[in-house]
Amino acid sequence: MNTSASPAPITLVTGGSRGLGRSMALALARHGHDVILTYRSNRSEADAVVGQIVQQGRRAVALPLDVADSGTFAAFAESVRGTLAQWGRDSFDHLVNNAGIGVHAAFADTTPSQFDELVNVHLKGPFFLTQALLPLMADGGRIVNISSGLARFALPGYAAYAAMKGAMEVLTRYQAKELGARGIAANVVAPGAIETDFGGGAVRDNQQLNAFVASQTALGRVGLPDDIGGVVASLLSPDNRWINAQRIEASGGMFL
């Protein structure tokens, strides 16, 4: 454990039990962060990540959270407050809004229910969750919102999903502007296509799609979760404290 006078930074990662969020949580622990991670339903997956973080000598706690249900955010904030109190802290340092879902539907076929679900998870959720957690964020902390390469380039079937991510990129600039008085910086990390189970695991499991993405990527392969976890951990390092209101795409150079 960290025995220095300065406490380890505490970072909260939503959707930290699997996929990119898991990679982020583990990378942050390797960089000396204690981690609060959230999960929606699979407690065993979340506990496994907590165990890996503890093995690295860091503290970690998994808390349940459905980012689509903004009515639960006040109670979630109290759970975070209680966790911090157990660690002898009254604030956490960084927030990573990562939790998400994938919906693949052509623009002409997207239903209102699909659209509403994406709004709740990818826009309304991060908007009001961040709002609810602001009283517990330390001055000088940082927010990382997760967007997508699809906010820059267009692939059929992702109109609604990409629209939410584009909105989050705009929101990030407003967060940077309005929270700057507290020394809180806000940035966006936009992954390209990554081999995870996101969206049914198509990029990982569909060899034709995988090969197409690799052929359109300057570095010649599809991304892996650890390609993104390391980016987030690096962005939250003290060396990058002056980066603010920026969109950082981590796609290996897709569609250049």
Rank of each mutant, 00 (worst) to 15 (best):
Q208W: 04
P238L: 10
V121T: 12
L133T: 02
N244S: 13
A214K: 15
L118H: 05
S237E: 03
V144H: 00
A185R: 14
A159H: 03
A250R: 10
M254I: 07
L224A: 12
T172W: 02
P135V: 02
L129H: 15
K124F: 05
V121G: 05
F127P: 13
H122A: 06
G183W: 14
P126G: 09
T111Q: 06
D197W: 15
Q246R: 13
Q114D: 09
L123Q: 15
E178Q: 13
R221S: 15
G125H: 10
L219T: 14
A176K: 10
N210Y: 15
T217G: 15
P135L: 04
F127V: 08
V203N: 14
G149M: 07
L118W: 02
I184H: 13
Q246M: 04
D197P: 05
S113G: 00
R142N: 09
M164I: 01
G220E: 13
G223L: 05
L219M: 14
P135D: 14
P225W: 03
Y161S: 02
A245D: 09
R182Y: 07
Q114W: 03
L150Q: 00
G252R: 08
A218W: 15
P238G: 05
V170N: 09
L136R: 15
P238Q: 06
V119G: 02
L150H: 01
L136W: 08
Y174G: 06
A132W: 08
A160E: 03
F212I: 00
I143Y: 05
G200S: 11
K165I: 02
G149I: 10
I243L: 11
G180D: 08
F212T: 08
L209S: 11
E195W: 14
N240K: 09
F153N: 04
Y161Q: 00
F255T: 03
S147K: 02
L171C: 04
V188E: 02
M168K: 03
L209E: 08
V231E: 12
L129N: 15
L134Q: 08
E178T: 07
V188K: 10
V121S: 05
V144L: 08
P191Q: 05
R173N: 13
I184Q: 12
T111G: 02
G253E: 12
T172S: 11
Q246P: 07
Q208E: 11
G252M: 10
G141T: 04
L179N: 14
A138K: 15
P135H: 11
L134N: 08
P112E: 15
D226E: 12
P112M: 07
I248G: 05
N145Q: 08
S148C: 00
L235I: 02
G192F: 13
R204K: 14
P238N: 04
E169T: 01
G230P: 12
L236Q: 10
F212Y: 13
A163E: 01
E117I: 00
N187A: 04
L123H: 12
L129Y: 15
I184K: 15
S215K: 12
G252D: 09
F198W: 14
